[in-house]
């Protein structure tokens, strides 16, 4: 075992040690990360294409999937030490996630989508209303959109609402996967600017996965999936 396991884990926001994940009924791992740490408040750009194991990584970080081997610590909390229900609650309270698309429940209004996320974190409706206005303003979304059905918004608007939803519970970790793939370049840079500003204001740790290297200048740290994921590389215990 590498010495990094013994390092104090509570200083880093994200710490993975010897994490291996296999699909059920499959022998070969599709993800193997020996050691990876992200410091609190860091904004990390993870460069990776589809098939590089990035979806698996994000699902592991979110606690939706559990690793077959190794452990993940988030803000000092071992995910292994939590049962399934506790992991779901931990995710609701500490992690915001935004994906390429389909981030919102289409038949709910913008406000209801945000309230849904707040519901599982136990955030009161009063707090939601207050935070909602400032979040939407920060994302250049007009307050009238609040009561519109999510599926009547443009893709750009939907992605911004997704950010608002991800941030409503004041998460410590924001996980974002290719959020700009459906946006044109102008909308893209506007979106990124707002995202980084909100992440800075809230002192949120940000893990941003994309294959789009033009976004690199927005980040302080960069790592590539091919460096991170040892799966496929012959692995000797």
């Amino acid at each position: 075992m590498s010495s990094s396991v013994n390092k104090p884990l509570n200083k880093s926001a994200v710490a993975l040690s010897h994490v291996v994940y296999r699909y059920p009924k499959s022998k070969a791992p599709i993800l193997h990360i020996e050691n990876w740490q992200v410091g609190s408040g860091e904004h990390v750009f993870v460069h990776g294409r589809s098939g590089s194991g990035k979806s698996t990584l994000l699902n592991l970080l979110a606690g939706i999937l559990t690793a077959n081997e190794g452990n993940i610590h988030l803000f000092g909390q071992s995910l292994l030490a939590l049962n399934a229900r506790q992991r779901d609650a931990f995710r609701a309270n500490n992690i915001g996630m935004v994906f390429q698309q389909f981030n919102l429940v289409p038949y709910l209004s913008v406000l209801e989508n945000i309230q849904l996320a707040a519901h599982f974190a136990g955030t009161t409706n009063e707090v939601v209303r207050q935070r909602c206005h400032s979040l939407l303003a920060g994302l250049s979304l007009e307050p009238q959109l609040m009561n519109r059905r999510a599926d009547t918004l443009s893709v750009g608007q939907q992605q911004r609402v997704a950010i608002a939803r991800a941030l409503i519970n004041n998460p410590r970790l924001l996980i974002i996967d290719e959020p700009t793939s459906a946006l044109d370049s102008e909308a893209k840079s506007g979106f990124m600017t707002m995202l980084m500003q909100l992440a800075n204001e809230n002192e949120t740790t940000l893990i941003f996965v994309s294959h789009d290297e033009t976004l690199l200048p927005f980040f302080s740290h960069k790592i590539s999936m091919s460096e991170l994921n040892l799966a496929g590389v012959s692995y000797v215990d």
Binding site: I64, D88, F102, L104, P106, A117
Partner: peptide, 16 residues
């Protein structure tokens, strides 16, 4: 499927 995934992401357990 997407709807269910979204619910999981925002913290709904499979029991929910």
């Amino acid at each position: 499927q997407h709807e269910m995934a979204i619910l999981r992401v925002v913290g709904a357990s499979p029991l929910v």
